[in-house]
Design a protein around this nucleic acid. Structure first.
Lengths: 113, 113
DNA sequence: TTGACGCATTCCGTTATCGGAATATGATTG
DNA sequence: CAATCATATTCCGATAACGGAATGCGTCAA
């Protein structure tokens, strides 16, 4: 068994830096495959493959425009990621070093005196 | 070239469901490796390997306690993920169907009349 | 010291990923 | 229809990921 298929798994889809870059670019509007490839400095087939993954998890959608295919952002699938990660917010707000925790404990104890 | 190393990449570290489950479990406190394996229904070596990945990206930390090793959460690394994903919030707030966008465009145009 | 326990590591086989090159498909234009 | 442009797919090779089984290693208890 290898890693879970990236298809139908948003977390895996955004685990790839190039795919994150594609999504970021698409925030400013639709792009053709060639444009994306050029802006990212990758080959056309590579861009096409990444777009396929993003399409399969529903993070982008394609629109036919003549012989071009314009890809647009559909970020709704990112909500799940945002919420999962957000569940940890209390754990990074403030510092949670072991030392810091110890210091906080100390202060708390003293305050109770 | 294969996939980027999961090591030193938080996005990749949380792309694996079992590892997400481990992090979730650790929100309620430290656990030993064996406890985690049992609670997740996976083998001890498997748990140990996932913990290694999480340790290497800094999402967990280990503390020696007798012959056990207690793993604790250090979620600070998740902040980066939360912020990146959060940058897309405006795109999933409200619906962004093509139809909806069209309707919004229409309303906007009329408002300008 | 020996044995048991807890954990990490290694080795192995299977599967998936990624980039590149070549090629296929599909639409537009002449 | 032929040529061209834009995109998708396929094939390939190298690499990495994952789980399982076996093993190594340190710690504690008797």
């Amino acid at each position: 068994m290898a890693r879970a298929a990236t298809t139908s798994d948003t977390f895996n889809a955004i685990a790839e830096p190039q795919r994150r870059d594609i999504l970021t670019l698409l925030r400013s509007g639709e792009r053709s495959v060639t444009d994306l490839a050029r802006e990212l400095g990758i080959s056309q087939p590579s861009a096409s493959k990444h777009l396929r993954v993003l399409r399969e998890v529903g993070l982008v959608q394609a629109r036919e425009e003549g012989k071009q295919r314009l890809y647009g952002l559909d970020a709704r699938g990112l909500r799940e990621v945002h919420e999962w990660v957000g569940g940890f917010e209390q754990f990074w707000a403030g510092s949670f070093d072991r030392l810091d925790a110890y210091v906080r404990e100390l202060k708390k104890t003293r305050a109770e005196d």
